[in-house]
Amino acid sequence: MTLYEVKEGSRVKILNITGGHGVKNRLAAIGLFPGAEVKVVKSPPGPVIVEVAGSRVAVGQGMAKKVEVERL
């Protein structure tokens, strides 16, 4: 399952992120890395919003499809 498909309000664990080092590194710096647990505040249409490390972060649809997650 990808972050794009997660239902609003559920908690998920990130399994894998597809992309170059630049993407992964910057996502990791705000707490989005394999193993991290986040809450999905909003799902599409529009951006996906997740709660991570106390802040709200909007992730575009393209990016959300590259984040593989599993439901907790």
Partner: peptide, 18 residues
């Protein structure tokens, strides 16, 4: 860890910061 090295380091750093 099923993770590439840069992500692994970033994760360690993030966890230490937390």
């Amino acid at each position: 860890h099923k993770s590439d090295l840069p992500s692994f380091i970033a994760r360690e750093r993030f966890l230490l910061a937390s």
